[in-house]
Amino acid sequence: MGEALTFSEPIIRFGAFFGVFLVMGAWELAAPRRVQAIPRLRRWPGNLGLSVINTVALRLLFPAAAVGAALFAEAHGLGLFQVINAPGVVAVVLSVIVLDLVIYLQHRLFHAVPLLWRLHRVHHADLEFDVTTGVRFHPLEIVVSMCIKIGVVTALGAPAVAVLVFEVLLNAATMFNHANIKLPQPLDRIMRVVVVTPDMHRVHHSVRREETDSNFGFSLPWWDWVFRTYRTQPADGHDAMIMGIEKFRDPGELQLARMLLQPVRSED
């Protein structure tokens, strides 16, 4: 089963990625939440270019990714769930929930530590907010994130199936909650009970720092409630709020080369 999962993991992940990306992209065209001042053709090449670089870098540095770490832990009896011999369903469900909590805490860490913020601010410097913002991360952030994920997966002894499920859900949720799509407000309120919605996460991309430091969740909204980082709406409203970071407001910053260099540049 391990070899089959190792072989199928990239196929499943890439298939899910492209499927969700196409659906969100089409939905944005059919029912956009905000009118965008900067056209897709100016933003998407850089954002998608980062995604390609990140995918290649991860496959070169971590060929088996987090699923491989889970298979290794299982084969050697490493990690909490392996040691206590937790029932399969329990281990899968708890692993997905704990990994989501770790992503929330990691996200807060990337905002709190200046050196990590220099990497993460590439994600926040997008001047618009749509499905490609969800894949706009600096390669060094992606590498650091994978190292953390592998460490947690090994410590948990998370089942490989749980790790794959988590990765697919995280990628899908990230593209969904960054999408420029319009949801009816009653539906948005209901959905926020179990998943981070675009209106909820959009607040996090505000140019106002107090709003940037809120709504850290990617998949599950519960952690923002528990740790009191939840903010219902942006102060200026969703239509008028300004996205991005004050320093990097020149449209030229949307170029791939400029994004790769942003971490070494000052915000002053």
Rank of each mutant, 00 (worst) to 15 (best):
M175P: 08
S51Q: 06
R40Y: 11
D224K: 10
R33H: 06
P221L: 07
D199K: 02
L71P: 08
V93M: 05
I11E: 00
L5T: 08
R34D: 03
S51W: 06
R59Y: 15
P39F: 04
I53P: 00
V131W: 15
L116I: 13
V90G: 00
V194H: 06
L94C: 03
F21H: 01
W44N: 07
G77L: 10
G68M: 07
E211H: 00
L50P: 05
I181D: 01
S95A: 14
D126R: 02
L60I: 15
Q233Y: 12
R231L: 15
I148D: 03
G49H: 06
A86M: 14
L140S: 06
T212H: 02
H238N: 06
P251W: 07
M243Y: 15
A173W: 08
V153C: 06
D126V: 05
K247V: 00
A125W: 00
P251Q: 07
D236S: 13
F72E: 14
R228A: 11
M241T: 15
V161W: 06
P159C: 09
A172I: 12
P184K: 12
L29I: 12
G77K: 12
P251S: 07
E267C: 09
M200R: 04
A240H: 13
L170I: 07
R189Q: 15
S51Y: 04
P234N: 02
I103L: 15
A86N: 04
H204R: 09
T133P: 09
I38Y: 10
V67E: 07
V264C: 14
R40K: 07
M1T: 07
P221H: 09
T174K: 02
G46P: 11
L254P: 09
D199Y: 00
L80V: 15
H178I: 03
E9A: 12
V23G: 05
L140G: 01
N85Q: 14
K182H: 12
V196W: 12
Q36C: 06
V113N: 03
L50W: 06
G252W: 02
L29K: 13
V195M: 01
T154H: 04
L41A: 08
L170K: 11
L170C: 05
A64P: 05
F14V: 11
P198N: 12
S214V: 04
A91W: 11
I84E: 01
A70E: 03
R34W: 10
D188V: 14
F17R: 01
V96D: 05
W27S: 11
F218K: 13
R108N: 13
P63M: 02
V23L: 15
G79H: 07
L94R: 00
E267R: 14
G25H: 08
P32Q: 13
V194M: 10
L115C: 02
I53N: 01
P45V: 04
V90S: 01
F21Y: 10
V161A: 09
D130H: 03
W225K: 06
H205K: 01
I97A: 08
L261S: 12
F7N: 05
L50N: 02
D188Y: 13
Q255V: 09
E141R: 07
L99Q: 05
F227I: 07
L94K: 00
V92I: 15
W223N: 03
E167H: 00
